[in-house]
Amino acid sequence: MSQPVISVKHLVAAYQKNTVLENVSFSIPAGSLTAIVGPNGAGKSTLMKVLLNLHPAITGDITFFGRPFKEVKKRIGYVPQRGSVDWDFPTDALDVVTMGLYGDIGWFKHPKKQHKARAFEALEKMGMQAYAHRQISQLSGGQQQRVFLARALVQNADIYFMDEPLAGVDAATERAIMATLKKLNALGKTVIVVHHDLQTVEDYFDHVLFLNQTIISHGKTQDVFSKDNIRRTYGGNIRWLGGVD
């Protein structure tokens, strides 16, 4: 595979005094579609937040395209967990998507027509144009997730981080989101997704990173997605193991 776009070496991170990530090292190849899987409390969201500079690392070296995060911020898009924001906020879907452009618009300036047009285009790509002016609390969970994805699309990044975009969404949204991810992937973008559903890993992702405080296994899905690695990551507490050998 081609050169890595993300390289993480000896990363350690903690909440208060509890170590959440221990000696995490991996590199993500360009243009890959990677699932991060692991049990609750494995540090999946924390890993994402540390990579995006939203949570401090204690030690470790993180580079994107061989450079530190701050220099390449604009090439990185982030879709947080849907529950991380207040959906009763007085705003509509189009406005939320426009927020993805605030970094480009710059200080003291307000969004212009062209920004709104780009935001609308992104909503269209997610099949959400009919809901552009709908107050966000009046959208279903799946629609809210699509709005979040549209907001990431409008950023036109090269690397996308998504924290559980498929959690609690309807089947139509899941299809729409996966189609979008595959499209991004086809355009050569790198996508990293925290994923909770082991049954769909093989269908959806070409790379898997098994995480439980440290990296258990990482590589191409066909090489590393095995019963053995799942057991090592989840311990005995796993309900589903069918279909994998």
Partner: peptide, 19 residues
């Protein structure tokens, strides 16, 4: 700072990630 107040109130994580 209208748009900055809006984004940092609604989604501070996104705000930080876009600078």
């Amino acid at each position: 700072f209208y748009k900055e107040w809006k984004i940092t109130s609604f989604d501070p994580a996104l705000a930080v990630s876009i600078g």
